[in-house]
Amino acid sequence: MSHVTTLIPPSPPPPAEARPYTLQRFLGSVTLGIWLALSVGLFLTIVNGWDPEKFARYGPNFLSGLGVTLTLVGSSIVLGALLSLPIAAARMSNNKFASWAAYIYIYLFRGTPLITQLFLIYYGFGSFRPELEALGLWWFFRDAWNCALFAFVLNTAAYQAEILRGAINSVPRGQHEGAAALGLSKRIAFYRIILPQAMIVALRPYGNEIILMIKGSAIVAIVTVFDLMGETRRAFSRTFDYQMYLWAAVLYLMMVEILRNLWNWLEQRLTRHLKR
């Protein structure tokens, strides 16, 4: 009969295996080095080319441009959300005609670039000036900002209608049936049961749509609206200083990143009851 007479003395854990120096590691160091070099270069160009006069002159312009961008995006998202409701309702209705009309609207606005829609409205409506003046609408279409807002609202309404439809359709049939079994009316079932679930599904696409709008809004600079991009182009055309574009890039990146992180937090918060 054998039994243990001595205990193995406690010993430190075996040393961690040295990670081999792989190609991936090399590539990672190189690419990270490139990013580091770029950011240092960016910092140095900003420090070397720092011109208090230029900053004092164009800094406020950039801020007002930022304000214009945010106002434009905010109001077009809100108005587009309102407009998307009837479009989504028509798209999902049993009426063949309404459904087709909504489908054609959505296809038209999602299938063509935003910039052509903007040109069509800004330059194209200008050729109907007599008719628009007769209708008393010319004051609206005369202004580039209004045209941009109009084009953006129409465009984002098409996208948001599709988001809404997808979200509502994603709620399983059982939920409708369950509501009916509880004796809830269609209306209450929709607002209390279907819509809250659909909105959670729609949250992420809505966030993406807002980000797309922020990025897409840069094109209004071409039709003489002085948003962030417009101010950047104006400053660049006066100074020929490449830094202007880099400043705009930093501002746009900050906007998008803040929104993205906010949205992640919002999604975490709203779906915490779904976590296991």
Binding site: T22, Q24, R25, L27, G28, S29, T31, L32, I34, W35, I214, K215, G216, S217, A218, I219, A221, M229, T232, Y245, A248, A249, Y252, L253, V256, E257, R260
Partner: peptide, 27 residues
């Protein structure tokens, strides 16, 4: 690169996507 086991490479790839997804195409 994003799926790589190497954290440095992942970080570099993530910086790349963050920058170019966040910038407006026009810019």
């Amino acid at each position: 690169a994003k799926r790589s086991a190497e954290p440095q490479l992942r970080l570099a790839a993530n910086i790349y996507t963050t920058i170019f997804r966040g910038l407006p195409e026009l810019l």
